[in-house]
């Protein structure tokens, strides 16, 4: 009797508990995604998986299909074909339950300018079943001094921080951040990064779009580069595009008394793949084994008591790799 009664009384969970949720390790799964606008293939067979709890950075030049892809994930656009799963929902018809669990910080979207910071937060908080507290949100984005200031009186950076707070109002599991720090001063950017880092340690998944490579480098667990509607590279910021295996650059200045020809010959040494060029006093060496090249160079210079001033060893930056990847495809 009891068993039957239970079935009658508790047929399904509340809508906000997430019908269709599966406990997969992937927050986002995209397979064979296509979307065209007329003849323009904005997204052209894109596959992508975002793991739960990672900060995933989505890079790509304007017009590469980045915004279209993100807006399909957010449920703003309908796809032409392919499968998309976001937290186990199809964003096209996830409805209220889906929206309870995601937060969206759009690139440019207004806030009711007549409301104060507190009123705006309270309004958007009221849309969610389990919102964060207003004070917590205000502290997260450091708007403590502007709680009762109207949105119309906020600076661009402050407004953007309120934007971030509004995206976090519902305490979402998955947050889409579209160029979240554009217009921030350096200190505010560091603070925003700190907030995003904090979200990661709470186990939230962050889908971050940015044009700042240092931001991707600082925050991302993995980076994907989109070009012509497809993913052209996907890896950690340090490994993407073979960044960890490509050649390094050694630079230094030779004292004027020393000629380039006096330097030890690196070019015919094994394993080095070295390639040296000089311009005046400045010497540049490209090599796949900077450790060996430096050993040879510094052994020579220390032995002869010559200072190689301004010595640097550098790997290509994320930006170098990004430009290389996106140029190849254009």
């Amino acid at each position: 009797m009891h068993a039957i009664k239970d079935e009658v009384v508790t047929p399904v969970c509340r809508a906000s508990d997430g019908i269709g949720y599966n406990d997969s390790v992937h927050a986002i799964e995209i397979k064979e995604l296509f979307k065209s606008y007329g003849d323009l293939k904005a997204v052209n067979g894109l596959d992508l998986t975002v793991r739960t709890g990672e900060v995933f950075c989505f890079l790509g030049p304007n017009g590469a299909g980045k915004t279209t892809t993100v807006e399909i994930l957010e449920g703003y656009r309908k796809r032409d074909s392919g499968t998309v799963s976001v937290l186990g929902y199809d964003p096209e018809n996830g409805g209220r339950a889906f929206r309870e669990r995601i937060g969206i910080m759009l690139q440019e979207s207004g806030i009711q300018t007549q409301l104060s910071v507190r009123e705006a937060l309270d309004l958007y908080r009221s849309y969610y079943s389990h919102p964060r507290s207003t004070m917590e949100l205000i502290e997260m984005v450091e708007l403590n001094g502007s709680v009762d200031v109207r949105v119309e009186a906020l600076s661009g950076g402050q407004r953007r921080r309120l934007d971030l707070a509004l995206a976090l109002a519902g305490d979402p599991e998955l947050v889409f951040l579209d160029e979240p720090t554009t217009g921030f001063d350096p200190a505010a950017r560091r603070n925003a990064w700190h907030t995003i880092d904090g979200l990661r340690s709470l186990g939230k998944t962050i889908f971050l779009t940015t044009h700042y490579m240092d931001e991707a480098q600082a925050l991302a667990d993995r980076v994907a580069v989109i070009s012509d509607g497809q993913i052209v590279a996907l890896d950690t910021p340090d490994r993407i595009g073979g960044r960890n295996t490509t050649t390094s650059t050694i630079r230094f200045l030779l004292p004027s008394s020393i000629s380039v020809n006096d330097l030890p010959t690196l070019s015919n040494m094994e394993h080095l793949d070295a390639d040296m060029s000089a311009e005046g006093e400045s010497v540049t060496i490209h090599t796949s084994r900077p450790d060996l090249a430096l050993y040879v160079l510094t052994s020579w210079s220390v032995g002869k008591n010559i200072e190689l001033s301004g010595l640097t060893v550098s790997r290509p930056t994320l930006e170098d790799i990004y430009l290389e990847l996106t140029e190849e495809n254009n």
């Binding site: 906000s16 957010e74 449920g75 703003y76 209220r96 339950a97 929206r99 309870e100 995601i102 969206i104 759009l106 440019e108 979207s109 207004g110 806030i111 009711q112 300018t113 958007y124 849309y127 969610y128 079943s129 509004l166 519902g170």
Partner: peptide, 11 residues
């Protein structure tokens, strides 16, 4: 102003 788009993204 994009307020409607923002609201559309909430529950």
């Amino acid at each position: 102003q994009g307020i409607l788009k923002r609201i559309k993204g909430t529950p």
